[in-house]
Nucleic acid binder design. Sequence first.
DNA 1: CTAGATTCTGGCCATGCGGCCAGAAAATGA
DNA 2: TCATTTTCTGGCCGCATGGCCAGAATCTAG
Lengths: 210, 210
Amino acid sequence: MRPENETDGQPKRSFIEQARRAQIIAAAVEVIAEVGFVKASLARIAAHAGISKGVISYHFAGKEELMAQIVTQVYSDISEAVVPRILAEENHNAMIRRHIIAVAEHMSGHRDQIAALGEIFSHLRKDNGEPYFDTDSSAPLYEGLEGLYRSGQESGAFRDFDPRVMAVTQQSAIDAMFAYWVANPGHDLDAHAAELAELFDRATRASDTD
Amino acid sequence: MRPENETDGQPKRSFIEQARRAQIIAAAVEVIAEVGFVKASLARIAAHAGISKGVISYHFAGKEELMAQIVTQVYSDISEAVVPRILAEENHNAMIRRHIIAVAEHMSGHRDQIAALGEIFSHLRKDNGEPYFDTDSSAPLYEGLEGLYRSGQESGAFRDFDPRVMAVTQQSAIDAMFAYWVANPGHDLDAHAAELAELFDRATRASDTD
DNA sequence: CTAGATTCTGGCCATGCGGCCAGAAAATGA
DNA sequence: TCATTTTCTGGCCGCATGGCCAGAATCTAG
């Protein structure tokens, strides 16, 4: 039996439980990165972690929760590493460049994480079959970029484009960069990021005549 | 029993067989677009087409071949509609713009097709679990864009960027546009395409000082 | 030391899937 | 008309999966 501490809000977790959850998440990331979402069964993840299958069921409500936790974990790692570096920049043009370059630099040391994230994004579905992560659930992510674009437009650093379209495009360009890198490990990630930074700088920057 | 005409090269197909294959492909596209790849079982596709499940097995070697045929079909439709319009342009900058706008115009009347295509791309795997369509299998697609970029660079229309990165980025931007549109049917596809055309024109165009 | 809470094991079960097949039905052609 | 080929039906089979549970093992506190 599982202790019921979920009377309100967040369940309390013992240290052992936190450690187990972290271990399972780490194992799941490695397995998904290696064999893909579809073949990453609970049995396989458990075997990779050196534990029994039931342990996963014990610590997570189901496969869905495990996957969602992976996404949460990776996302917060990224934010922690990238956001401060963006905010350290002093003008909007530099912030755009920094966003792309910082996330690439961070991910270059965490390839399994970004590979697993891509798999989960495209495969995880709710029971009714709808995507777990669509453009709406990513809204907070886009809103950050959109806000940056809008304020840059107000300051005159950026030309007059549709911020939503630009945000969707920049995010997709970054995702594609990682997908390409995951499929082609020899690819030069930093060089790719530098190209993207130049690309979006030119695409967003106000013309001299504007 | 199935007649064996596959002695060499392409199997001969009767008119009835061609019609059935087309019917099944059409049904599969609709089902995938509606319920997603994972829930699009052969049984469901057959029911939607009003035929027995075995018919699909009879006309296609397996689910894999059916999915591959869908991709082939949709791709050739796109090429037929878009390529001539690109070639009709007279300079490289206009060709880039036309590529984006023409594909969006074509797809605006074929939403199920592009929705199914996205599902198949991200879900279809070989037996060994590897993606059926990765960046390498899309190489012919990229090579077309890359060639366009290179010749534009030689002519001086484009600045000096990495053609591979630009091709991957432009394709991902277009894919993201469709994905956003599929998830948000009210989205203005033509306006989005116009924004992208402007974006990539600015990103690729040679500076006055180059 | 001991009782109770916590964590783990290993296997069972229902479900849904794709592939397959024997025989029915329909089309073909002489 | 009737034999032969082509097409279709409906169900069966093996397989893999995620969820679940009874009982064992381990830890904790009094």
